[in-house]
Design a protein around this nucleic acid. Structure first.
Length: 845
RNA sequence: GCUGCUGUAGCUCAGUGGUAGAGCGCAUCCUUGGUAAGGCUGAGGUCGAGAGUUCAAUUCUCUCCAGCAGCACCA
């Protein structure tokens, strides 16, 4: 019966053979001209750090299962791979190991590619590229020039976040708690001329566009919404006693009659002006600047102010003069850098007013009768009716806001304004290993774009990393060139582009890669938008917002016909592992050990080297510093690609973290072998029907399809376990053989090597990678017999097995006739019987 | 502080207005020619807590508790 003579599946033999067979057959080559419906499955491309880690394996396994499944369903699938190859680590390696960033990156790519191939991913490697390829970044330079012509690129002097360790500028979002996201160094402020992309021009579109992204996680949409940070309010000016004007912004102009002071930021011009001839004010400003910026420090920081002695006239009650303070809690870079203080209805203002004994005026109350209710220990920021506000009294908050804005506009002392938290995207980096910004600085002509026929502006190969700062800037010859305008001597721009620019359009280049332009619009539009994009939640804001912006910008200049690149987004969880450590007895510092150095004995663990116990710590994301990493190469070498792939899909829902464990991978390995034995029993000659097996088979096929389409791989896995158990317990029949064949097809996207091996040994033609998904007989999806629960006093007393659809009256009679039920009733009077057909009978006494 | 997510077997998770499930782990036993293994059987649950709606709530509603994540002097 069995054609599989080997008693065990040997991945070391099979994996490589089938990977070669797929390559030879060109199975995963995506044909842009195919008449089939198209599906673009994309995982976020990796940075070539040198090693594939478990997080990559999980990410790419998910995409791979989906891609293989889609192909089985008759789609022409684009599932590409490439390399996000520019960035700091290559330069760090260059400095530390005295290698060239390009060579280091190329070596890493070669190694990681071989690792990915060993896991058997169904990728179209013919479309592979690295963002450090001059062809790629040359096209990127061309796109950058296009955006420049469209007015979406500009240069301005701005205060920047300077990382003193990396010697580079950081975007706001790359500064975390005042420190560089990569170096961890405390960031300094510097003024530099920088290149910017006008992302703010699309702020509203990027915000409203989120509503169209129904297949994105709610969480990610919310994070982007917060990041864009739209707020509506009134911007207006106070006339000051010294003759100046100060602009303030408020989202609650309805509370304007509750204002009891004006506060400006320490670096506001008014504050600077006061400080110029008041040493006390200058000292206070210095004190503000020393204040910490971490969340914890801000939480506990006391609200502090300095009374400038200046007063501001209230625009709706000119008799009132409000004191003007310099305050440590007002930020210069949001709104106008100055606020009106309304202590009654803003917690910060409340704390400030309490400290400096300023009036706290109630202007919003539960009802008009509560107009003089005293405040408790906090401000009241909620809704209500306006009181103590002259012409606004009796209005609700929304009406009062509209009224104040209308009065400000007609009185010409202010106007309604929308303020965004989002800033333009500073893309200049003072580094070597990035896309050179294609501009030339000419003393006569100014800043001139490099003509497109001179692209790419290629990086020089000979660079010196021994001097701190930008190697491009101190290269002896590279920057010297001729001005395209006047032909005179000129200098190249030595800044390079933020690497997030590289990843803002790579998904377009995967779809179409002509030599003479970045992409062909028609071809891109055949594939895009990406049907399913999969990656880590850490890119929820930066990469995904930039890619959305870039796509919209290209649409804006007529290069694309769609606005959103990723129709559906999935953010997968991390791969985690427990940690093993010992604490030094003197200072309590932890020394961590790798899983390989440790022997687990039940709940405890000992160090192999000395046999003494180690502490088992929390289950956290695999990281080098905690040494809780498992190397995919070793695991694949021991268990083969399929067991690892299976582990990545089973147990945890894909959006949640997946705890790696030795026991887990062992279980997967055993299941691979169990399947091997079962699938080898395929016998096309068997006869006879087994309805329950047939039913289970078709139910599983239908459910697995739904699960895979919803990316609920763990559910599909659970159903495959169930079907496996059912088939194992069945006796030979045609139904059983069909079940085995279906099971083989169901597992083939997840365990492709095992599946090919069985497919070939059981004499089925061709490659299973190209076979269609099994057909579902919908007649077999419903059971024709059902089990009915019989309850009395809320407890189960008996079950009945009856034909599906039996009428309620018959069920009731059968239930009451049950011996077990009669025993439970014990002669009690039946008051009511609830019958739910095909489900249960409940007898109430 | 605000927002979101999650609480079901020892672990990781399915599931449902009506009989509480799977895999792993654990225990007993069998096999020792599928053997760095295979199999039988079994134990194990206040479905986070409380209240409400209902004949019936793990499921629906409300309140609370715990854990995780993101955001945050954003005016």
């Amino acid at each position: 019966m069995s054609d599989t003579t080997d008693s065990r599946f040997d991945p070391a033999q099979a994996d490589l053979r089938w990977q070669q067979a797929w390559d030879d057959a060109g199975c995963f080559h995506a044909d842009s001209d195919s008449p089939k419906p198209k599906s673009y499955v994309l995982e976020m491309f990796p940075y070539p750090s040198g090693h594939v880690h478990m997080g990559h394996v999980r990410n790419y396994t998910m995409g791979d299962v989906l891609a293989r499944y889609k192909r089985m369903r008759g789609f022409e699938v684009l599932h590409p791979m490439g390399w996000d190859a520019f960035g700091m680590p290559a330069e760090n390696a260059a400095m530390e190991k005295n290698v060239h960033p390009g060579g280091w990156t190329r070596d890493n790519i070669a190694h990681m590619k071989s690792q990915l191939k060993r896991i058997g991913f169904a990728l179209d490697w013919s479309r592979e590229f690295a963002t450090c390829d001059p062809e790629y970044y040359g096209h990127e330079q061309a796109l950058f020039l296009d955006l420049f012509e469209a007015g979406l690129v500009y240069r301005k002097e701005s205060e920047v976040n300077w990382d003193p360790v990396d010697h580079t500028v950081l975007a706001n979002e790359q500064v975390i708690d005042g420190k560089g996201w990569r170096s961890g160094a405390v960031v300094e402020k510097r003024k530099l001329s920088q290149w910017f992309l006008k992302i703010t021009q699309f702020a509203d579109e990027l915000l409203t566009g989120l509503d169209t992204l129904e297949d994105w996680p709610e969480k990610v949409r919310l994070m982007q919404e917060n990041w864009i940070g739209k707020s509506k309010g009134l911007q207006f000016a106070f006339s000051l006693s010294d003759g100046q004007l100060v602009e303030v912004y408020s989202t609650r102009p309805d509370t304007i009659f509750g204002a009891s002071f004006v506060a400006v930021a320490a670096d506001h011009p008014i504050a600077q002006g006061v400080a110029a001839d008041n040493p006390l004010a200058a000292a206070f400003i210095e004190q503000c600047k020393r204040g910490g910026t971490t969340a914890a420090e801000l939480e506990t920081a006391e609200k502090l102010g300095f009374d400038t002695g200046i007063t501001a006239a209230h625009p709706l009650d000119p008799a009132r003069a409000l004191p003007v303070y310099i305050a440590n809690f007002v930020l210069m870079d949001y709104g106008t850098g100055a606020v009106m203080g309304v202590p009654g209805h803003d917690q910060r203002d409340f704390e400030f007013a309490t400290k400096y004994k300023l009036p706290i005026i109630r202007v919003v109350a539960k009802s008009a009768a509560d107009a003089d209710q005293p405040f408790g220990a906090a401000a009241e920021a909620g809704d209500g009716v306006i009181v103590n506000s002259g012409p606004l009294d009796g209005m609700d908050v929304a009406a009062a806001i509209a009224e104040v804005i209308a009065r400000a506009e007609s009185g010409q002392w202010g106007s309604g304004k929308t303020v965004w938290r989002l800033r333009d995207w500073g893309v200049s980096r003072q580094r070597y290993w990035g896309t050179p910004i294609p501009f030339i600085h000419c003393a006569a002509c100014g800043v001139v774009p490099v003509p497109k026929d001179q692209l790419p502006v290629a990086l020089p190969e000979d660079v010196d990393f021994s001097i701190p700062g930008n190697p491009l800037a101190h290269h002896p010859t590279w920057k010297h060139t001729k001005c395209p305008g006047c032909g005179g001597a000129a200098n190249r721009e030595t800044d390079t582009l933020d690497t997030f620019v590289n990843s803002s359009w790579y998904f377009l280049r995967f779809a179409s890669q002509p030599d003479d332009q970045p992409f062909d619009r028609a071809e891109v539009e055949k594939w895009l938008p990406v049907e399913q994009y999969i990656g880590g939640i850490e890119h929820a804001i930066l990469h995904l917002l930039y890619a959305r912006f870039w796509t919209r910008a290209l649409q804006h200049i007529g290069k694309l016909g769609f606005a959103e690149p990723f129709a559906s987004l999935f953010t997968q969880g991390m791969v985690t592992h427990e940690t093993y450590a010992r604490r030094a007895p003197d200072d309590g510092r932890q020394t961590f050990f790798t899983p390989a150095e440790v022997d687990k004995r039940g709940e405890a663990a000992v160090l192999k080297a000395d046999g003494f116990p180690v502490e088992i710590g929390r289950v956290i994301k695999m990281s080098k510093s905690k040494k809780n990493v498992v190397d995919p190469d070793e695991i694949v070498a021991r268990y083969g690609a399929d067991a690892v792939r299976w582990f990545m899909l089973s147990d945890s829902p894909p959006e949640r973290d997946l705890p790696w464990s030795e026991a887990g991978i062992e279980g997967c390995w055993r299941f691979v072998q169990r399947l091997w034995r079962l699938l080898g029993q395929y016998d096309p000659a068997a006869t006879g029907e087994d309805k329950s097996v047939a039913r289970k088979t078709h139910q599983t096929i239908a459910a697995c399809a739904e699960d895979i389409e919803a990316l609920s791989f763990n559910k599909a896995v659970a159903r495959i376990y169930e079907l496996t158990a059912v088939i194992e317990k069945s006796v030979p029949s045609a139904s059983r053989s069909e079940a085995i064949r279906s099971l083989l097809l169901l597992v083939s996207p997840m365990m492709p090597h095992l599946a090919e091996e069985v497919w070939s040994r059981t004499g089925q033609g061709g490659l299973i990678a190209l076979a269609p998904w099994p057909h579902v007989d919908s007649a077999l999806l419903v059971d024709d017999e059902v089990t009915i629960a019989v309850q009395h006093k809320g407890k189960l007393r008996d079950t009945l097995t009856v034909a599906k659809g039996m009428p309620g009256a018959e069920l009731e009679a059968l239930a009451l006739a049950s011996e077990k039920v009669q025993r439970s009733l014990d002669g009690a009077e039946v008051r009511k019987v609830i019958v739910v057909p095909d489900r249960l009978v409940n007898i109430v006494t």
